[in-house]
Amino acid sequence: MRFLTFLLAWAVKAAAIVLTIVVLNFCLIRLAPGDVATVLAGESGAADPEFLARTRAEFGLDKPLAAQLLTYVGNVLTLDLGVSYRTRRPVADMVLERLPATLMLTGAAFVFALLVGPALGVLAAIRARRPADTAITVLALLFYAMPIFWVGLILILVFSVTLGWLPPFGMRSIIPPVGDVARALDVPRHLVLPTLTLGLFYVAIYARLTRGAMLETAGLDFVKTARAKGLPEWRVVGAHVFRCAMLPIITFAGLQAGHLVGGAIVAETVFAWPGIGRLAFDALLQRDYNLLLAVFLASAVAVVLINFATDLLLRIADPRIGAGR
């Protein structure tokens, strides 16, 4: 019953968020200099008023604002996001085509960051103020301060250009590699550097956060109780300190989901990864706002879904939340 309530509340929240973003999108279109007609006119070189009027009518831009908004919202709800100003293809198709690549990259980076970051943080907390802690803290500080695109470029410089270990661009080799193993490893090999690039920043964040949460939790009374019970140290750290310290980390991971999707744009641009980030960059260069807005909407939906997943995880990890406390 409580779980049903939770699902329902989430559905309401998600709908509100998506609807707001759709409206925001519409407002942004109106803010943009010129409209689809002038863009197309500029392209074809035919700027005569008749052409402009015809195109505007074609895209429904001659109707009142409120009617346009309604049409827009209605279109979005039926997954009709309009056509690209450039390719004349429906942008929804273009985005859906590219979405798997982005999900693969962000997913890999998220998992990488969530596995490595907290592990390093725990290690640092256990070894607080000793060399291992110092090393982890310094590394986290360094990666926290590096721009993502720069990390990508340096990784390419080192691992592709100099060492030749990993491919620098794209998702697949242009000439498919020979052999089953090599073929199976083609995409994963391409995935390594973009994942590192996108993930290292979050590894740094999670490591710092985990270390802090672990040290703070270690000072709480119930940890003293665990020791007073005669539990071995590994049990105290694992079942008592870490189990409680990870709660703020899950919350934070959910909040950071939006940033992760944003970071994907940059990482995909650096590595020419064929995802929606790369699509956004191209749309940006060509001022293809319709496409850009579709990417924005898709990424917002992705964030809502990740938030849902982390909220669910948090409910499982912290029974106090479901009980209304």
Binding site: I17, I21, L24, L28, L31, A32, P33, L255, G258, H259, V261, G262, G263, I265, V266, A280, L284, R287, Y289, L292, L293, V295, F296, S299, A300, A302, V303, V304, N307
Partner: peptide, 16 residues
């Protein structure tokens, strides 16, 4: 806070 912030920033700068 839920809106993907960097994407929104890109959009805003591009459009403005």
């Amino acid at each position: 806070q839920t809106v993907p912030s960097f994407v929104l920033a890109v959009l805003l700068v591009a459009i403005l």
